[in-house]
C-alpha cells in the first residue's frame, strides 16, 4: 500500500490517469444516480433494481454489436424500449407499493432485481459480454496517460443527456408536473395534476436514463447478468450523499465515487475497489446521521 502511494508521488502523471478514468466513468454513474434521485425524490421509491436496468441497457448495445450495428446506435432504441418497460413495471408492480411503508418498495424492487438478473441469465447466459465501440485510444505525455475515445465520447453524451433532462424538467409541462409532485403530491393533486401519471412517467424516465448509462457502460467495462448490484449500490451512495433534486450535487458525488474507486483500486489493491464503494456508503450514512443528530440537538 505504501509502495503504491510512493508510486503515485513519484509519477504524478498516474494521478492524472486515475483522475480522468474516474471522472469519465463517474459521468455514467451520475446518470443512474440522477435517475434514482428522481424516483426517490418524486415518488419515494427506493429502487434497488437500478443496476439491473443499467445492465439491461447494456444488453441492447451488446445485441446491436452482434448483429453488426454500431452499439451506440442502440441507445435510442434502448431508451425508448426501456421507457416502455419502466411504464409497464410501474403499472404492474410499483403502483401497488408506492404509498406503502418505506421498506416495501425496497424489498419489492429487490425481488424485481432477482427476476431481472435471472431473466437475463436465462436469455443471454452468464458469460461476460461487451460491446465494441471500434474507436481508438489517444496517448498523451509519451503514452503515460491514455484516453480512449469512447470514454470521452460517452462523457460528452452524458453531458448532453443531463442538459436535455434539465431543460425538460424546467420547460415542459410534464417536467413541471414532476417537480410539483415532488414538492407536495397532495397539493399537486388538488391543482389537477394526475399524479399517478406523473409517477408512471418518472419511473419510466428513470428506466430510460439507466438504459442510456448501460449502453455506455457496455462499451467501456464489461456486463454480465449479475453485475447490477454494484451499480445499484453506487446509485444509492450518490443519492445519499447528494440528496434529491440536486443535479449538481449528484454529478459531483458521482465524479467523487468514480475517482475514489480508481484511487481505492490503485492504492488498496483492486480486490478492495468494490469495498471502497461500500465503505464510502457507510461513511456517508454516518456523516448524514451526525448532521441529523446535531440538528436534533439544536431543535431540542
Amino acid at each position: 500500500m505504501l509502495d503504491n502511494l510512493n508510486l503515485l508521488a513519484l509519477a504524478p502523471l498516474l494521478n492524472i490517469q486515475l483522475l480522468l478514468d474516474g471522472i469519465f466513468i463517474g459521468a455514467i454513474f451520475a446518470l443512474a444516480g440522477y435517475g434514482l434521485a428522481l424516483v426517490w425524490g418524486v415518488m419515494n421509491v427506493k429502487n434497488l433494481c437500478q443496476g439491473e436496468y443499467v445492465i439491461m441497457g447494456g444488453y441492447f448495445a451488446w445485441y446491436a454489436g452482434t448483429i453488426g450495428i454500431h452499439p451506440i446506435l442502440a441507445m435510442p432504441v434502448a431508451v425508448v424500449v426501456m421507457f416502455g418497460f419502466g411504464w409497464v413495471i410501474y403499472r404492474v408492480i410499483i403502483s401497488r407499493v408506492v404509498d406503502k411503508d418505506m421498506f416495501t418498495s425496497l424489498l419489492a424492487t429487490f425481488g424485481l432485481a432477482i427476476v431481472i438478473q435471472q431473466g437475463l441469465n436465462l436469455a443471454f447466459g452468464p458469460e461476460v459480454q461487451i460491446a465494441q465501440s471500434g474507436l481508438e485510444t489517444r496517448s498523451f505525455f509519451d503514452g503515460a496517460v491514455t484516453v480512449s475515445e469512447i470514454r470521452f465520447v460517452s462523457f460528452v453524451i452524458c453531458c448532453v443527456l443531463a442538459s436535455l433532462i434539465v431543460l425538460f424538467m424546467k420547460n415542459s409541462r410534464m417536467g413541471q408536473a414532476i417537480r410539483a409532485t415532488a414538492q407536495d403530491a397532495r397539493a399537486a393533486r388538488v391543482m389537477g395534476i394526475d399524479t399517478d401519471r406523473v409517477y408512471a412517467f418518472t419511473y419510466a424516465l428513470n428506466c430510460a436514463i439507466c438504459a442510456a448509462a448501460g449502453v455506455l457502460i457496455s462499451m467501456i467495462w464489461v456486463i454480465q447478468p449479475f453485475y447490477g448490484l454494484t451499480h445499484s449500490i453506487r446509485s444509492f451512495v450518490i443519492v445519499t450523499a447528494a440528496g434529491f433534486g440536486n443535479l449538481p450535487g449528484v454529478i459531483l458525488a458521482a465524479f467523487g465515487i468514480g475517482v475514489a474507486e480508481q484511487f481505492g483500486g490503485f492504492i488498496l489493491g483492486a480486490e478492495l475497489q468494490q469495498a471502497t464503494v461500500v465503505g464510502i456508503l457507510l461513511l456517508v450514512l454516518i456523516w448524514r446521521q451526525a448532521l441529523m443528530s446535531r440538528r436534533r440537538q439544536a431543535l431540542a
Binding site: 478514468d21 503515460a144 448490484l229 474507486e261 480508481q262 483500486g265
Partner: peptide, 19 residues
C-alpha cells in the same frame, strides 16, 4: 494485485502495470 469477484474494471491495476 487481487481482482474482485465481480470484476468489471481493472484499469487501476493496469495503470500500475504501465508505470
Amino acid at each position: 494485485d487481487k481482482l474482485p469477484r465481480d470484476l468489471s474494471d481493472m484499469s487501476a491495476t493496469l495503470t500500475k502495470v504501465r508505470a
